[in-house]
Design a protein around this nucleic acid. Sequence first.
DNA 1: TTTTCAAATGTAAGAGCTTACAATCAGGAT
DNA 2: ATCCTGATTGTAAGCTCTTACATTTGAAAA
Lengths: 331, 331
Amino acid sequence: MTIYDIAKLAGVSIATVSRVVNGSPKVSEKTKETVRRVMAETNYTPNAFARGLGLGTMQTVGIVCPDVADPYMAKAVSYLEKNLQGYGYDCILYCSGYDDADREQAVSLLLKKQLDALLLVGSIFSDEQSAVLTQLREAAARIPIFLINGVLSGDNVYCVLGDDYQAVYDVTEELVLAGKRRILFLTNSSSYSAGRKQQGYEAALAAHQLDVDARLILHCENSIPATRDLLLRQRGLTFDSVIATEDGMAVGALKYAAVCGLRVPDELSVVGYNNSELSICCEPELTSVDNRGELLCRTTIDSLMALLDGQTIPKQQVIKCHLIKRASTDF
Amino acid sequence: MTIYDIAKLAGVSIATVSRVVNGSPKVSEKTKETVRRVMAETNYTPNAFARGLGLGTMQTVGIVCPDVADPYMAKAVSYLEKNLQGYGYDCILYCSGYDDADREQAVSLLLKKQLDALLLVGSIFSDEQSAVLTQLREAAARIPIFLINGVLSGDNVYCVLGDDYQAVYDVTEELVLAGKRRILFLTNSSSYSAGRKQQGYEAALAAHQLDVDARLILHCENSIPATRDLLLRQRGLTFDSVIATEDGMAVGALKYAAVCGLRVPDELSVVGYNNSELSICCEPELTSVDNRGELLCRTTIDSLMALLDGQTIPKQQVIKCHLIKRASTDF
DNA sequence: TTTTCAAATGTAAGAGCTTACAATCAGGAT
DNA sequence: ATCCTGATTGTAAGCTCTTACATTTGAAAA
């Protein structure tokens, strides 16, 4: 079934059929009617490739995220997809893994696909020299690129991110004001946002004339048992509170406290990040920073559409996080 | 940059360039070399639409799932994507929502896209009359359809699913043998797999000459607070154990136990489903059925590839689940 | 040297759509 | 009746690739 068949059956030219398919106004109601009927009867679907060839777009954007199995990214992808759907766009998904080489490959594959935009979720590019970065900047020459919770300078590159610096600054300050002096900072990557979080932590301590004890900054995997075990191995280390850059690590800290018989929040306060389902699952429930994934995604898509519509949009949009207070802290 | 430019620069015809791009063996090493060099220098990428038009495929499969934000489906999508990647296929994702009308729309949109296959995750079609079903069967005339954890008869439709019936049968039996007599069954949908789970529950009770008390079968949302509150509202109901068809509900039951001061597992045993991260997050940790999402997905993709390769594959593949025993039960 | 044949390459016809431009048509103005 | 106009429709030239078939080439066989 091609456009020619429909044209023949409807007794019109293929141009007219195409106009009907694309909702052009320059077709009389009568023929529009006829063509629609024939299309319905024959169950005709325009060939997407030919359409894409002619139009130069297939209304599709690419989403690259390290791992959709991660609940935070899963939520993000879900929001993105829904919002894109609302604008009539489809999304093709790549789970790139966290490795730079893998991500580079994902981007390069995606670039072959005549997409309308590229969305990178939870980007964790470490150094400016990284191959992905140069590749992304090249890519941006062709289509707009959006980083969600990441930062990259460059033409046609836009960033939408939570204000992680401020969020951690604020919660650190709250802990200090609550009398905590040895705040353990658990982080899991060298990403831009992990860096910003750590800066917030250090700045808040400095603002209160507290020294940053390097031993209190621990790198660990975002996994409950891994974090628990890591902490159990640090027996020399004393701390009265924990700020984790992911909820999984925070729950690991709770498990550690349970093993050691530490009362939470009295003897150990714990703060998580992302306000995932884990935070209301554990015991006690976790105080956690909600970095507004849903809002970030909506903002991203709205901005993208504005851009595709020819409007100018800000290069960087920063959205304030919310601290959700629960039983794992006493402020 | 089109294939013509490359041909001109390399001093060959477009056919030769195309052959090089597609790895045809009928090109001399020398010209292959030249063309490759020119392509690299010019950073040429074949147009995916034109390619698709010519080849009739773009190596892409569609994935429909109700909600990637759900950790179980997120994991499934992640596995599917990775496995497809391994075969050089891309995936385009639709989060259809749980509503039949929405899912129908998703499928119909997807069908316009010249995909190589359609994968439905966690399908929860209720009745045989549903519009999605007829639509899917029509779709199957064009491309193969795979249901992951769902069942649908029809030509060119294949199902890969966990043996939920047996899993629930077995765990119910374990509870009975552990002396439990009033086993609450928490379920959240009228999907095929929810039905099978319930059948397993009822069959196991019957096998041990225990009556099925209809009041002990509760429908509830897969959400920790929703389940907790639901149980708190059922004060007349007595039960000594809970089997939930999702981990979220099981954790809700644990929260309920905490509120009521019931000791788990002594006074209340709780079994969850899917062995999600929640199950090692809560306190006590949750005994949960692992329905082998990873294996299901790998099986699905391997089968799909075998099918595309012209081989015959089974219409239905059932994979045994694993019970992961933790502290919320005492068997 | 001529013949033969396979390997290498080129030509051109699609694949199914969009759209600029041309053609047609109906009806009002002259 | 003739001309003009705007609305509608058709024609044909792309868009970029694949590939069947034709052609050329070069070397081995005769």
